[in-house]
Amino acid sequence: MIEDSYLQISQVGIEFPTDGEPFRALQDVQLKIAKGEFVSLIGHSGCGKSTVLNIVAGLYKATEGAVILEEREVSEPGPDRAVVFQNHALLPWLSVYQNVELAVKCVFKKTKTEHEIKDWIEHNLSLVHMDHAMHKLPNEISGGMKQRVGIARCLAMQPKVLLMDEPFGALDALTRAHLQDSLMEIQQQLGNTVIMITHDVDEAVLLSDRIVMMTNGPAASIGEVLSIDLPRPRDRVVLAEDPEFNNYRQQVLRFLYEKQRNPAAKAVA
């Protein structure tokens, strides 16, 4: 097995049925991701970033092409491809602990004892610094905290790939920065393979090993791939003045605002 085809998105395209002609959202999406790599998908809204993620998750079925994870084709959703949803998607009637428990029990029911399961849930909640609010309901904690729990729920499943759909998009800037730092720290520690959707350029450059920039839809595809060779651990304050960091930022910005202008902006002009 070649090291960098841990996850392979191969010639993927998708069409959605409509009343008239079927709508082609994606065409020829081709990407190989190595184990432990952090990849961001960036593009204007409506370009099909989420669709790519949903296909990898198995929530959508590709019209053509396939997703291959560890040499096996993905055919349905499963806990080996955990999804962090933009709006946390915690079950509001379960406490923080119970939300993680539901996921842990699905994955480890047969392999862990009752006691080990409890320890594992607590361990994962402490990874995201949420062990102090274990028995609160999602309504009783802030948006950032909910998203931490959403991440803990996914980490606790020990997925082969962690899929994040604009995980910090609904948060304020300070909370977002905190969570980005937490995520970097955890990913450094656990070596997760991550695909993250974002439309925040700074976030993409700061977190990623590679940034995949998508062209505008319909029939969206991958435009350019940018490798970010910044040493880890990365510090946002230091990097803010780093010429290399800014160079990467500029490359992404140039792609987004010169080569692939926002379709909405085009309409205005």
Binding site: A57, G58, P77, R81, A89, L102, A103
Partner: peptide, 12 residues
């Protein structure tokens, strides 16, 4: 909520 259904599907 669709998200909750998706959570259920991911958890199988």
């Amino acid at each position: 909520d669709r998200d909750l259904i998706n959570v259920s599907r991911v958890l199988q």
